[in-house]
Nucleic acid binder design. Structure first.
Lengths: 123, 123
DNA sequence: CATCTAGGTTACCAAAAGTATACTGGTTGC
DNA sequence: GCAACCAGTATACTTTTGGTAACCTAGATG
């Protein structure tokens, strides 16, 4: 619904349809907006990746952050964690279907950012 | 490029094409990911809005936050600020073309979030 | 003259987010 | 036995973010 501001009989301005509910945009940002979250999903796009490999790919993020984000994403149903009974044991993370759709939207963000700062990401 | 992990001749694992540059997704999140930023852009989508009206629409955010976000968005060329020579003087904020394209992506985020939590935003 | 509006600013505080470094316990290869 | 790998934890610390509350100038209104 289109938000409006009206004046009441005393000339005081009021907003109708102000953000009364938790807004889906703010909520979505809480899930996908944390630092490194986008990068993690991005690196999972081609298939399952093991924890330490992910950590190597996103070398600038600490293991603590990687763990934290993965746990959070798992809780939201965006990634799955699977323990592989190898030796030594390994753990693989993958995108769920929900995670794959998030990827589409992350790609939109990527395109948007590249369009405004082409000099940084050039050709 | 598809990120990979390879083993060198000693069996040590290494990532190729790790996040060496600032990633456009992380950068974009810095611009659009702050709290209230999405809501502000959302409320500007139908045309210019005055500062206090915006503040009334997003009642849960303080004026300080609104100001801070607007300054940041202005610096990134996402919104414009125009002083209207009325009496009393007023200030109108609008989306730039760049801001309007961000709106497309925010709508994708909105749809994504609604799809995963339909019970919250239902019909 | 007191109060309302406009569009903010300032000072301060709490909590969240992020970084850095070290450590665990088990396994495999040299 | 020693080192390296696995998947993380633990602890301590700094930085950033978000939020509250009060205040400001200037013009209009009662």
């Amino acid at each position: 619904m289109k938000p409006r501001v009206i004046e009441d009989e005393n000339g005081r301005r009021r907003a109708t349809s102000a953000c009364e509910k938790p807004c889906p945009i703010e909520d979505g940002m809480k899930i996908l907006g944390g630092k490194w979250t986008g990068s993690i999903l991005w690196h999972l796009q081609y298939g399952p990746v093991r924890f330490n490999d992910l950590s190597r790919m996103i070398a600038a993020a600490s293991k603590k952050m990687i763990t934290e984000r993965l746990r959070h994403l798992e809780a939201q149903g965006v990634v799955t964690r699977e323990i592989i009974n190898s030796s030594p044991i390994s753990v693989e993370y993958s995108l769920t279907e929900r995670g794959k759709t998030a990827l589409l939207f992350l790609d939109e963000l990527r395109k948007w950012t590249e369009s405004i700062e082409p000099e940084l990401y050039g050709s």
